[in-house]
């Protein structure tokens, strides 16, 4: 029995689904890629719609900033289109795409770290002075994640948000599975300590019950 049920892919466009789009959603990744390679705009659009939420979720959680994440997402898909001929069709598309996204996020984090920012100070000041609200509970995790090492952060996001297993994460991050388990354990420990310091417990926050 699984603790975290897999997410259901939602139709985010809000448009009526015609037969073409319906068949597009049923197409395999390989067929979509072939359509993209043939210059089919509908195929490209379908591929973006299929994976944009996944890629954006990773970038948004990694960077902690929506606009930065949006830039990275578009860059990731453009790079994917450029490199689509090099994709090994015997392997699934999603880990390959997430690898591109993870690499782009790490590059962006390196660039962002060189920029001076007052975000940390301001956020910590607010966090330390204001009581925890129901909306703030999720932000506490994000705050603690931004303090963690980038590889811990990526590992945590891939595991809990992308719902990949340790073997898949090891493939994406190009490191042994045992290392992933160690990183996962350490980041959980850091986050648990952070929550404890902030006094977050299920009996304190009713929304966690």
């Amino acid at each position: 029995m699984h603790l975290y049920a897999p997410k259901i892919q939602k139709q985010t466009t809000g448009l009526p689904i015609n037969n073409d789009c319906q068949s597009l959603h049923e197409e395999s990744d390989l067929d979509m890629v072939q359509r993209c390679l043939n210059g089919d705009e509908v195929g490209m659009r379908g591929l973006v719609e299929r994976y944009q939420s996944i890629v954006f979720g990773l970038c948004y959680r990694m960077l902690g900033h929506r606009e930065d994440a949006e830039d990275i997402v578009q860059d990731v898909f453009l790079r994917m289109f450029r490199s689509l001929r090099n994709w090994d069709q015997s392997r699934p598309l999603k880990p390959w795409l997430l690898t591109i996204a993870a690499n782009r996020c790490r590059t962006a984090l390196t660039q962002l770290s060189r920029r001076p920012t007052v975000k940390d100070f301001a956020f910590e000041t607010i966090a330390d002075t204001q009581p925890i609200t129901s909306e703030g509970v999720g932000e506490e995790i994000q705050l603690a994640l931004e303090k963690a090492r980038p590889e811990y952060r990526l590992c945590f996001i891939l595991f809990y948000q992308q719902e990949l297993n340790c073997s898949e994460i090891a493939t994406i991050m190009d490191c042994p599975e045992g290392t992933i388990k160690t990183w996962l354990h350490r980041v959980r420990r850091e986050l648990a300590d952070h929550l404890q310091r902030r006094g977050i417990r299920p009996n304190v926050c009713p929304e966690l019950r």
Binding site: T12, Q52, V73, V137, G138, E140, L191, E207
Partner: peptide, 21 residues
């Protein structure tokens, strides 16, 4: 661990929806 699991579920639900197609 119980607390962390509950907070993670709250955290993972809070991703904004986007459309970049």
């Amino acid at each position: 661990q119980q607390t962390l699991d509950a907070v993670i579920q709250t955290w993972s639900r809070a991703t904004p929806e986007i459309d970049f197609a």
